[in-house]
């Protein structure tokens, strides 16, 4: 049995509890005290608040400006992410067919060229021959933009392919980058190239640790970047996932 502790000892026990440094005897004693005097919780909470004030003493370091932009951009999309998600697991043949449809639109009736491009598409798409391949529709961010296309991502193989139509070549010194919003993070998928004829078809190696099991992509972005290795998307968003 535990006697009634002195105020000093009680304070020590509460502090020890908050700091997680009670020995087993003290822990047992505090457990009994808490059961007898539930109001002690208030003092526990108070000390927790005190501990939580410690970071205020750190030197003020302003986060980089692009961080604010990335956060605001991630929530500024008025489309409900759940509704916006265009995620279908498709059989391989349908994936190829959907990309072929893009090229058909891009190339009209030029069947020879279409066959060439389809051959190229198949080459790109072989990297996605996995069981967990997902297709996303994307379009120009600007309403007037004629750009549209598809992004295919193989979560198992950490690979992606992008096919875009009506997209102009990037200005000199800039390049296009694909980004994914996964849960609460923005993931840099990779850079891709654009052809001279207004459409892009390229494969991208997604970083190994970019996706975990159960992750869901709520949004895709394509940005124009001046940096050779951007950490966060710039404000120049040109393509977004279609709603």
């Amino acid at each position: 049995m535990f006697g009634s502790p002195s105020p000093e000892h009680l304070e020590e026990l509460i502090a020890g509890y908050v700091l997680g440094n009670l020995c087993s005897e003290e822990a047992e004693e505090f457990k009994h005290l808490l059961a007898e005097k539930p109001e002690l919780i208030q003092q526990v909470n108070q000390l927790q608040e005190v501990l939580g004030l410690l970071p205020y003493a750190l030197p003020e370091i302003r986060p980089p400006q692009h961080l604010r932009l990335a956060i605001v951009e991630a929530v500024n999309d008025p489309v409900n992410p759940k509704l916006a998600r265009k995620q279908f697991v498709l059989p391989w043949s349908k994936i190829v067919a959907s990309v072929a449809a893009i090229f058909t639109l891009a190339l009209g009736i030029d069947s020879y060229r279409l066959r060439q491009e389809l051959s190229s598409a198949k080459d790109v798409l072989t990297v996605l021959d996995g069981r967990d391949t997902h297709l996303y529709s994307v379009k120009g961010k600007d309403k007037k933009s004629p750009a549209f296309g598809s992004v295919l991502i193989d979560f198992d193989a950490d690979k992606a392919a992008i096919a875009l139509n009506n997209i102009s070549s990037p200005p000199t010194g800039q390049s296009y980058w694909l980004w994914a919003v996964v849960n609460d993070r923005i993931i840099r998928c990779g850079q891709f190239n654009v052809g001279t004829n207004g459409f892009a078809l390229d494969k991208i190696s997604v970083p190994d640790d970019a996706y975990k099991e159960g992750d869901e992509i709520s949004k895709l972005l394509v940005t124009l970047e001046s940096s050779e290795s951007p950490s966060y998307p710039s404000e120049q968003i040109v393509i977004v996932s279609a709603s």
Partner: peptide, 29 residues
Amino acid sequence: YGSLVYGLALRVLKNSQEAEDLTQEIFLN
């Protein structure tokens, strides 16, 4: 609170990229 969160993340993680990631994670959460 951005600088408070970022400063704390940076102090613990000692890596600016990870601190940025965590700050973003906290606010988007």
